[in-house]
């Protein structure tokens, strides 16, 4: 029996995706608006993109955000991969329940709580707020997401490949780098990208933990948005959306190609 799409199914899919994409589409269209009034169309123009690149404060914030995201996502990827290995390969070690709790809690915990508690911790240990406190905070939050992504790959992993390498005399560390790591690499890359975007995007935790000289892009955008709509923010958003779309599409194509290649090698 093949599944058939009813009229109801098609309608709900069309309406659902329209709901998901229409607001983003409108935002992109109105970034090319010549009028200063964001909701009144005044002809096509790219002037806001020029204004954007001349906006020193916004550019500086973008640079800070990028550095924090790269650094925190890199550390989070290492920590998250280790945590995923610990959860899948170490059986029931002492304190495992607490460990899984600490992995899942930050993902659903309201950001205001995570942000406030980390800030109070940094104040208690007398660490100056700024670039490093935001980086540490983002690492802590995003490593949990990396853990879940890598863990779900390790769960479906064929352990016999590792056993074969060990039987042939490869020491554990070598087995890990020669067999395990290449097989879970796509999920590690996916985890890194997820951590990177989450860090780029975070407003709440960064607001609590930031200090002088570490104003991130979301904090800057948020303070401008509170003052009212601005076509420059539309332009900045469009660039971000374009970059993310490009990134996701190329990642999908890459993973598709590697799947095809491994299928070809298997035959």
């Amino acid at each position: 029996m093949t599944r058939r799409l009813s009229v109801f199914n098609v309608t709900s899919l069309v309406l659902g995706f329209a709901f998901l994409y229409l607001p983003i589409l409108l935002l992109v269209i109105y970034s090319f608006n010549a009028s200063r009034l964001v909701t009144v169309w005044g002809g096509f123009s790219t002037q806001w993109y020029g204004a954007l690149f001349r906006n020193q404060a916004l550019m500086e914030a973008a640079w800070v955000t990028l550095r924090i995201a790269l650094l925190s996502a890199s550390i989070a990827t290492v920590l998250g991969t280790l945590a995923a290995l610990a959860l899948t390969r170490y059986g029931r070690f002492t304190g495992r329940t607490l460990f899984t709790g600490m992995i899942y809690a930050p993902m659903v915990m309201p950001e205001v709580i995570t942000g406030l508690s980390l800030l109070l911790f940094f104040v208690a240990i007398d660490l100056d707020r700024g670039f490093w406190t935001v980086t540490l905070a983002h690492t802590t939050l995003t490593m949990c997401f990396v853990t879940v992504v890598v863990q779900s790959r390790l769960m479906t992993f064929d352990r016999s490949l590792e056993e074969a390498a060990m039987d042939l005399g490869a020491p554990p560390l070598r087995t890990f780098f020669a067999v395990t790591l290449p097989l879970i690499a796509p999920s590690i890359v996916a985890g890194f990208l997820l951590a990177f975007t989450l860090s780029l995007d975070d407003l709440v935790i960064a607001s609590f933990n930031t200090g002088p000289g570490a104003t991130t892009l979301p904090i800057r955008i948020y303070s401008q948005v509170r003052l009212g709509l601005s076509p420059e923010i539309n332009a900045a958003s469009t660039i971000l959306i374009g970059l993310v779309t490009l990134g996701v599409i190329s990642a999908t194509l890459l993973s598709k190609r590697s799947v095809l290649r491994s299928q070809r090698n298997a035959h």
Binding site: L20, Y21, P23, I24, L26, L27, Y30, V38, T39, T197, L200, D201, L203, P218, I221, Y222, V225, L229, I233, S237, L240, I241, V244, T245, G247, V248
Partner: peptide
Amino acid sequence: PFWTSFLIRIYAWIA
């Protein structure tokens, strides 16, 4: 859409 900024997606609704 989840990969694009949360803040931007909420901002889009203001307009």
